[in-house]
Design a protein around this nucleic acid. Sequence first.
DNA 1: GCATCCCGGCAATACGAATTAGCGATGGGA
DNA 2: TCCCATCGCTAATTCGTATTGCCGGGATGC
Lengths: 349, 349
Amino acid sequence: MAGAPTNHGGRITQRDIARRAGVSQTTVSLVLTNNSEAASRIAPATRERVLQVIRETGYVADPLARSLLRQHNQILGIFTYELVFPAGSADFYHPFLQGIEACAESLGCDLLLFTSAPVTDGARRIFHENNRLRLADGCVLLGRETPREELTRLVREGHAFVSVGRRDDVDIDGTAPGRVPCVGADYAGATSELARRAVALGHRRIAYAGSGEGVESAVDRLGGLRAVVPDVLHERSAGRDPADLLAALLAAGVTAVFCELPADAVALHGAALACGLRVPEDLSLVGLGEEDGPGRLEPALTCLRIPRREMGWQAVEVLVDVLHGTSDDHQRLLPCAMVPGQTLGPRQI
Amino acid sequence: MAGAPTNHGGRITQRDIARRAGVSQTTVSLVLTNNSEAASRIAPATRERVLQVIRETGYVADPLARSLLRQHNQILGIFTYELVFPAGSADFYHPFLQGIEACAESLGCDLLLFTSAPVTDGARRIFHENNRLRLADGCVLLGRETPREELTRLVREGHAFVSVGRRDDVDIDGTAPGRVPCVGADYAGATSELARRAVALGHRRIAYAGSGEGVESAVDRLGGLRAVVPDVLHERSAGRDPADLLAALLAAGVTAVFCELPADAVALHGAALACGLRVPEDLSLVGLGEEDGPGRLEPALTCLRIPRREMGWQAVEVLVDVLHGTSDDHQRLLPCAMVPGQTLGPRQI
DNA sequence: GCATCCCGGCAATACGAATTAGCGATGGGA
DNA sequence: TCCCATCGCTAATTCGTATTGCCGGGATGC
């Protein structure tokens, strides 16, 4: 241990350094805070003596004590309602995390994953008795969905946070609607654009397969489609046999299906082939999201590319805005690129 | 804000609670630390009054101040020499992180990613002037390689850490060799096992393609092969044309090649096919690692499965051991499963 | 009736670093 | 010789929470 002069618990403090250098703790602190103000107040000889001891001992300031005083820690929190590193959908979060990490690095911030949040009633919760939110200066919320009550409380208590994914306004008792800081993908705009394209290709009977309600991203997709095709046929797909769903769609004379989940499009594609139908000649299929996993469809699915990395980066930017109170609008919608694919074609009938 | 009685900087403290409840800060603290000792010292009426105020204000203790006293924070650090979420090799780290996260969650610990570590001389470094290591109770080191001097300093200064991946002992001036806490994959054992299999299949002239030096994992692989096949032919592969490498191997009469990097095996496979050779009939190929990415070889490469998730989990276990001073040996080698594949076959000639 | 004990609560202190106010010594000017 | 400014450094305080020791009053024991 090189004879480190630990006084009490093993960790070496500024007082230890001070003792060894024959100065006060204040002086050690002044030497360390290297600004022109303080530096000028210390004689070069003293300064050097202190630095020498610091070098010998390898002392570094305890960031905790420092943070307690400063009231901020250069730490950004990341909270997810599922595991941050899920096993199943191998890397849904990965691009988001890449963007967050890159931006945090450029800011010189560390990233704290709130893995300690206990699971109550089958879900992780931000607010629990030993809430560690304050360890971070602000927090990025990641996940397909955020419980309304948690969101409301975050806004009401004035926490610095940002959601990755658009979130509806929150109701703060009586006053103006609480806008939730967020960086989302512009599902509505992208879906509208695809819808216009489908219409231009001659499609008249268009369907939406998926819930279309609940989560904001689902509402936005259905809404984007409705804005262009008011009389869209809305069919739920959850837990439904693809062949069944397909039959219902065909019976209604549908020629193009917009699927909330790309996976549904893939399933419908399979069902269509099984019926001897051709895609897109007999039925056009569109996935309103990014195809995940390696199971690429052949021919390529017409779908969206969600700018996930960019969303992560910008989420951190917005979070910093929130912290500094810089900008006034803390909501951003990023455009989705369209993946042309080959499953959206001209109506043939 | 519900008229929260913030005194100074916005955050609400135990003193605020105390004022509102007409008690002292001590009492608030005692009410919060819910152990039998302290609880008995507070009258139920007082206790309830304090709890009421706490509920109204939504107060939660500042984990920072708490940590400063306790000298530990329930935070485990993760340090990587590259980005934690790299863009290129999509998810080399992902399985490790999964294991680390799962174990941390079971321990109720948060995870801190040291993204603030600045890049000096082209590489991230743990030790720099504003070292934030002490934010965490201990630290998991992730990455293919760890600079020796950083490792040495970690050991010398007695930091609690663990390396994912075996690391050689470190030289602490004069005293006994400093064993580095680590959880590694047993490359040596697995390679030996594969070598025995190759020998049993009739192979006599076996080559090792790769550096075989430097990083521990490379040394271990070559070592494991040498233990079974002392007269192995060692050919470097870095930056070399696969066809060129193949020619050299064939000229030496090699019938089985053990490749440090599965990617090299894939490249050699391509070169062999181009020469009209069959695998494994004319040449057996073994990858001494996990094939990464979706570019699976056809037929399947005989290689290893690195228990990355398990390594992550056990790394955290070892770290906890180190922290508590529980066990005495902090090195673990985990067995690698063999992926049979079809590129290692009987020698035909 | 006096010593003792327990109950319920509080003041004081510690954790480690940063900041403010101020103290003693020195030097220069009048 | 006296006064004041400057230099170089330190004592005291702060951040928010946990812990220790103690105090006053009422009940209990002998």
